[in-house]
């Protein structure tokens, strides 16, 4: 177990290293931020001073090592646009995205998994067909369009919910979150539902597939031959088996939603990291882009590690080996 964790940690560090190189080179190739930042009428002298100040006159590899050196001292650089440290910029936005994503993945799982289980348990019934049809809509209708429909319906016409933005925040430990105030919930619920639809469709289809497969297995037949009631067969025997692929997808979805909730955040004007990264790309804010992407990589690596650990808990046949 310990060897396994160490192995995974080394693996994670390699991934982060490779990613940082790719991101650094990629961002360098996009364009020169100086051109965007300064007044086109500025004198050549000011221009060159600025280039020197940011170290853009040095060769790429040297810039990279300066960056890495700073990172090891906990300094991810300063945003060229906001002129504040990147870490505080990202961390000021991260809780907003985090709460949006957790609520939406929660909704998707709490509705999608039971619905999928039912659809797989009685696959020929009308409710199952209805659930499956809805799941197709869930991941084929564009997110932004549903988002706008929701705003039209619940914010403009009915006036029940605010159309965008983040609500009042409260303090929990050292976090600021809107999930402790009713105004916060009113703001978060619509974007969260919007963001959850795709994932819900995915969860439904995945759960149903697992359920249908499990219902035909010999161990289910054997359980039925023992006289176990269906409820116990589903929750005692099948649930654990089908949760194995679900956990994997749950982890992947959690990661990708955290990193790329951009569309929903834009439609609902949600002050999360998704909007931050889009703005940074538009303004060629290099330090923000690089640090954000490296953080996303770290996040994915961590989520995958947790998923693997849960996996091993669920399936006794999985052995965690160190250093493979």
């Amino acid at each position: 177990m310990f060897g396994y964790l160490v192995g995974r940690l080394i693996q994670a560090m390699m991934v982060v290293f490779v990613m940082s190189v790719i991101v650094f080179v990629g961002v360098y190739a996009i364009g020169n931020p100086i051109d965007v930042m300064i007044d086109p009428g500025a004198s050549q002298e000011i221009r060159e001073n600025l280039i020197r100040q940011y170290g853009f006159d040095q060769p790429l590899w040297q810039q990279y090592f300066t960056f890495v050196g700073n990172v090891f001292q906990g300094d991810l650089g300063r945003s060229m646009v906001y002129n504040i440290p990147v870490t505080s910029l990202v961390f000021s936005r991260l809780p907003a995205t985090l709460e949006l994503v957790l609520v939406s993945v929660g909704i998707a799982t709490l509705i999608g998994v039971p619905a999928g289980m039912y659809a797989g348990y009685r696959p020929n019934g009308i409710p199952a067909k209805l659930i499956m049809a809805l799941s197709v809509l869930g991941f084929s209708v564009p997110t932004f369009w549903i988002g706008m429909l929701l705003i039209m319906g619940f914010a403009v016409n009915l006036g029940w919910l605010p159309s965008g933005g983040r609500g009042e925040v409260g303090h929990v430990l050292w976090f600021k979150t809107s999930l402790v105030t009713s105004d916060g919930w009113a703001h978060v619920i619509m974007p969260a539902v919007n963001l959850s639809l795709f994932k819900m469709g995915l969860m439904i289809r995945l759960t149903r597939a697992g359920m249908v497969e499990a219902m035909g297995t010999d161990y289910v037949r054997f359980a039925r031959a023992q006289g176990l009631p269906d409820r116990q067969i589903v929750f005692g025997h099948i649930m654990r088996n089908i949760s194995i692929p679900l956990v994997t997808v749950f982890g992947l979805e959690l990661g990708s939603t955290l990193a790329f909730a951009v569309v929903t955040e834009t439609v609902f004007n949600w002050p999360g990291v998704g909007k931050l990264i889009i703005d940074s790309i538009l303004q060629l804010d290099r330090p923000v882009m690089v640090s954000y992407l490296v953080m996303v990589v770290l996040l994915f690596v961590m989520i995958n590690l947790v998923v693997d650990l849960i996996y091993a808990q669920l399936d006794p046949r999985v052995r965690l080996k160190g250093g493979s």
């Binding site: 297995t217 010999d218 161990y219 037949r221 054997f222 359980a223 031959a225 005692g236 025997h237 654990r240 088996n241 194995i244 669920l314 399936d315 006794p316 046949r317």
Partner: peptide, 14 residues
Amino acid sequence: MVFQDPMMTLNPVL
């Protein structure tokens, strides 16, 4: 009832 394949009749994760 007892089935043919003892690999498959017991639930692998319990």
